[in-house]
Amino acid sequence: MTAQAPGAMEVGFRAKRASGRKLLVPYVTGGLTGWQLAVRAAAAAGADAIEIGIPFSDPVMDGPIIQQASQRALEGGATPVSILREVRDLDVSVPLAVMTYYNTVHHAGPERFAAQLVAAGIAAAIVPDLPLEEAAPWCTAADAARVETVMLAAPTAPDDRLPRIAARARGFVYSVGLLGVTGERARLAASATALAARLKAITDVPVLVGVGVSNEAQAYEATRVADGVVMGASVVRRLMEAGPEAVGDYVAQVRAALDAH
């Protein structure tokens, strides 16, 4: 818990929230065919930040769609280094976050990985299999490099854990929408708004719901309580099935739904 001033992504999110805007963060698996075009399309269609997945061989938090995307990207030769190199050419105006699993960080070493992110112009990192209790080596390195580390809160987290998660979170708190893995669901789980409300009650760090937010209606519903949403599987499925333009169209649709608040 440090008194570090908020980073660029968090400052931007707080300002947008203050102006009444709901935040939209689409996720795109790096290394998939067309992924850079998809990121640009999402930015142009009204995303407030974009989460770029660095694929890992064993994505235990992910359901079938993002598993398949990760496997395709890895089979296509994607590596953390190749993806971060391609990030430099993106030239988009919204902040970029990477999402990866802790072994990617551990293998490079926290300081080196943080430096690689900074060199690529990445603002933030999401590492879902890094629990609070083990987060110090990475968070210390990330804070020093001014990479914002988004912390995840699970629906099962007890009340006394949430303030500790929020205190450690930079950028936003990732309010996990359900018990389970990423993937599209027919309905928004009741736990999505319940956890977001618990978090909103104890922190003024922006609270975004992710995992299981599957379409514009669910995004609207989640943001009745939350400050924004992270949308993964529904974006990645469109990229794999229909290409980058479909991602742009979809993000525009969600944007319009969120702007109706």
Binding site: F56, S57, D58, P80, N103, H106
Partner: peptide, 21 residues
């Protein structure tokens, strides 16, 4: 070499980028 997977840090067969082999 040391790696983190399945919630533990231990010796792990992995490639030069930390992908589990």
């Amino acid at each position: 070499v040391p790696g983190v997977v399945h919630g533990m840090r231990s010796f792990l067969l992995q490639d030069e980028y930390g992908q589990v082999q």
